[in-house]
Design a binder for these strands. Structure first.
Lengths: 342, 342
DNA sequence: CGTATTAGCTAATACGTATCATCATATGCC
DNA sequence: GGCATATGATGATACGTATTAGCTAATACG
């Protein structure tokens, strides 16, 4: 009890392996460490590998990180992980990060402020950060100084980013509804200044204007990007006098569309008979609803995957110049059950 | 270009602070490091704090972790983060972990095997792991050897854990449906050997048996714990000859219930008129559906929070004995729109 | 006044790995 | 055989922090 022997519960280190294999710690590091092109004879290599196996050696990434000044971890921050869209983005990041040997520290911002979260990530020496859904708000802070950053759906001069064709998304929704003969249209979108969402609205409005269709402000609803936000928006739209009441509504976020649909169904308004609804994102929920939601698919996973590739390339190229963003990812209209002719 | 001066972009270290404050590195560590009860004069403390502020010093958690043999990070593994229930569990963990100064590395298992993920967590020197929804499968592996572990909804002799009253959940669902006069009942649940879900089934079956109501195997459906699983299950139940067709169904997972509901609605089967449906979990989705889902609320966040507290107490008590699990968390029937009399 | 105690600070070391300069040995070539 | 070179392994050092033993100066005590 008082004396504590060499604790076998303590994980084996390169020193332990070296001792057992009869070589130096440096040699062990060369054999088991990163670069496989180290000059080590096949014989000693074999001895080291065997000893490592026998001791159950696992490299300590913390120690490695300290000396290499690299943690092989990246952070990703989104506004709300409970929105499946953002979860998909993170999943996309995770997939390519895992392949490249990077861990991902996902950050929701519901619980803790972006600034604090960024500080935590920095303290843990993440090699870079992917930011999705933050307006100029968080970006102008010096909180990002000295960090490698990739933005999602947020154009910037300072940092590279990836984006989806948000304007196109709004446009597609508008054209679809116009094509069905709707002229009294409504829009429900988040009040936030998230750039991507603003662009969806802009695309929608632009297409309407080009078609000579008006979007009066009483049919514009700015609500939180949640189901209850959509619920409130549609309730209020349904309360308009018949002459102003829309026959179709574009919701810039699927969750909002889900709320809008629910408002209609509980109010006895037939969908798509009396009200057509178009969402945007194409989250899994869209196919769970009845009727299934017509929406614009935004390739969330691909968005995340590209962001991760962009960041990791930047990291592996050892301070190489930040690569420029590619073209916006195309979006696609997916017609399902919530839209129909007037 | 060739010569590289002291790079001011490199974050300040305790040495830098020490130099600027005119004290030793050790003193800086005493002032800024963990324990605030270090004996340092107010004067030097002030000098150090100011110097740190001027240099924008941030402690390097990697280095600290190396010497303290503690990373202040915990891992949490769930089967599927896209299931909001598990996301809620993780959120609960995150909340209390953040308070205690721990970071959380959430792990989905859809992309990478549990074993690989555990290895990654171990390599990053996490201080402990919270495991949810893994059967005996992953547990009997030696992959957990030497790790501090807390289980969620999975009883074990070896590791402490927290649990919800899964048997009670099944029971509540049964009693509710029996109370409405249903006697031809069905069950749809995951085929997996996840213990918590099995117990939900057991509670349901037990309560039926006590009421003298049979649950013949043709009204038992084992499907993946997803929406499409529920869809398939209900489709197949609706295909039964009228004499065998159930008038109500308990789905052990809300997602399955959502699929079941959709199957009914698209088949023109009135809910709750011709079919009552009870889910389990009470995820947000339950209130998005129309009609809203009657379900049994399982306190996911609280489950995660307790698991985190259990783990962190274990960690802070410096190898203290693993605390025993408390009582199962109570569950609660939430009657909404998918159940009604026969 | 001499000694014991304490407060306040520092030098040295450790954590586990990567990496570089160095050294010993083997091989090539004329 | 003698020299240049390539190969294979090692010792030493660094990464940024925590921590302990120990040192100095000041204070307490008899």
């Amino acid at each position: 009890m008082p004396t504590r022997r060499a604790d076998s519960a303590r994980p084996a280190t390169t020193h332990d392996v070296a001792r057992r294999a009869g070589v130096s710690q440096a040699t062990v590091s060369l054999v088991l460490g990163g670069n496989p092109r180290a000059r080590v004879s096949a014989q000693t290599r074999e001895r080291v590998v065997r000893a490592a196996g026998e001791l159950g050696y696992r490299p300590n990434l913390v120690a490695r990180g300290l000396v290499q000044r690299k943690s092989y971890a990246i952070g990703v921050m989104v506004p709300d992980l409970s929105n499946p869209f953002f979860l998909d983005v993170v999943t996309g990041v995770q997939r390519v990060a895992a392949e490249a040997g990077y861990a991902v520290l996902p950050g929701d911002v519901r619980e803790v402020s972006p600034q604090r979260h960024l500080e935590a990530l920095r303290a843990r020496q993440v090699d870079g950060v992917i930011l999705d859904g933050f307006g100029a708000l968080a970006l102008h802070e010096g909180a990002l100084s000295g960090m490698k950053v990739v933005l999602v759906d947020e154009p910037s001069e300072r940092w590279p980013g990836v984006a989806s064709d948000a304007v196109g998304a709004g446009r597609l929704a508008a054209e679809h509804l116009l094509g069905l003969g709707h002229t009294r249209l409504a829009f429900a979108g988040p009040a936030s200044d998230v750039h991507g969402l603003r662009m969806r609205e802009r695309g929608f409005v632009q297409a309407l204007r080009q078609a000579g269709v008006a979007l009066p402000s009483e049919r514009l609803r700015r609500v939180p990007p949640t189901v209850s936000g959509g619920l409130a928006a549609m309730k209020s739209l349904l309360g308009l006098p018949p002459a102003q009441r829309p026959t179709a509504c574009f919701c810039a976020v699927d969750l909002v569309a889900a709320g809008a649909l629910k408002a209609c169904l509980t109010a006895g308004v037939a969908v798509p008979g009396a009200m057509s609804i178009v969402g945007c994102d194409d989250v899994e929920l869209a196919r769970v609803l009845t009727p299934e939601l017509t929406t614009v698919r935004v390739p969330a996973r691909e968005l995340g995957a590209r962001a991760a590739r962009l960041l990791i390339r930047q990291l592996d190229d050892e301070g190489g110049s930040a690569p420029r963003a590619g073209r916006p990812l195309p979006v696609k209209l997916v017609v399902r059950g919530t839209t129909g002719p007037v």
